[in-house]
Design a protein around this nucleic acid. Structure first.
Length: 270
DNA sequence: TTGTCATGCATAC
DNA sequence: TATGCCTGACAAG
């Protein structure tokens, strides 16, 4: 489930299992073999997420960068017996990379990006990303960056929220739900919004992604935050086209914008 | 069992 | 705007 909340969970899991430990890396599929050999048998110095990307720094100053894209998935195996059994078996499907110690094994399948780069290159990737609601700067600069970008753009807010340079970590689900919760028409140009509205949108992104990170699933209806709801109940509008809006009962709309499905309620979001 | 679609994004045209 | 990535959830039959 690769919106930002899931990647931050992975970064924490990586830290919990591997931080300060020597980790072995290989690539059963073969596509990551050369890069794997560079970071294998190295100590993990840091693990962090920025937006939808994971960055793991190794003792030899090499950085693993992983972006799951739409298919990518992590599979974790814990316990020394389970780990050694898994390592001795032929893995199921295409495993791009495996990261393991005696007691934990992380398998990576189907990522859009999985590469080993320098610290400088990693910094460059991070510089190209917008503010991440899960990495809020204590001095408020991240909120400010988001507001400035949105308020100076003629692009519809529905597209701005999908741009990782504007806000890193929000994807199609959070885009639709944030705009519904704020009752904003997704076609409103950023510059037509007020600073107060844009700041509220940012703060709601911080709140929703924190809930998502805490539970490991995306939930956008306040009354269900701690209830582990079924998928069909989690959202206001996402994947609910033609179903009645939970507020006004009118059918939820669907449009394809820049190749992605956009869901909204035309009555509530004006 | 088979087919379709997806929470993303880089690249080619 | 189309395609590739190549997994997995879900629907249809």
């Amino acid at each position: 489930m690769p919106e930002g909340h899931a990647v931050h969970r992975t970064a924490e899991k990586f830290a919990a299992e591997f931080l300060a430990k020597t980790v072995f890396v290989d690539s059963p599929q073969g596509r990551f073999s050369t890069a794997a050999s560079i970071i294998s048998d190295q100590r993990v110095l840091a693990s962090r997420a920025v937006g939808k990307q994971l960055f793991v720094t190794f003792a030899n100053q090499q950085v693993l960068r992983v972006h799951l894209g739409i298919y990518g998935k992590w599979n974790w195996i814990k316990g020394s017996e389970s780990v050694s059994r898994s390592l001795s078996e032929v893995p199921k499907g295409q495993v791009r990379a495996r990261f393991f110690t005696d007691s934990a094994l992380a398998e990576l399948r189907g990522p859009t990006a999985c590469e080993v780069i320098s610290v400088e290159e990693a910094d460059e990737h991070i510089r190209n990303l917008g503010p991440d609601p899960l990495n809020p700067d204590p001095n408020g600069d991240e909120a400010d960056r988001f507001c400035r970008f949105v308020l100076s753009s003629r692009t519809p807010i529905g597209l701005l929220l999908m741009n990782q340079k504007v806000i890193a970590g929000v994807g199609n689900v959070y885009r639709a739900e944030l705009l519904f919760r704020a009752r904003i028409d997704p076609y409103t140009p950023g510059e037509k919004l007020t600073r107060k509205v844009v700041l509220a949108l940012w703060l709601d992104a911080v709140a929703l992604l924190r809930v998502g990170k805490k539970h490991g699933i995306m939930i956008t209806r306040d009354e269900l935050f701690d209830k582990n709801p079924a998928k069909s109940d989690r959202y206001f509008v996402y994947k609910r086209e033609q179903q009645p809006c939970r507020i006004c009962n009118r059918p939820v709309s669907l449009a394809i914008e820049s190749g992605r499905k956009l869901y909204w309620c035309p009555k509530c979001q004006k």
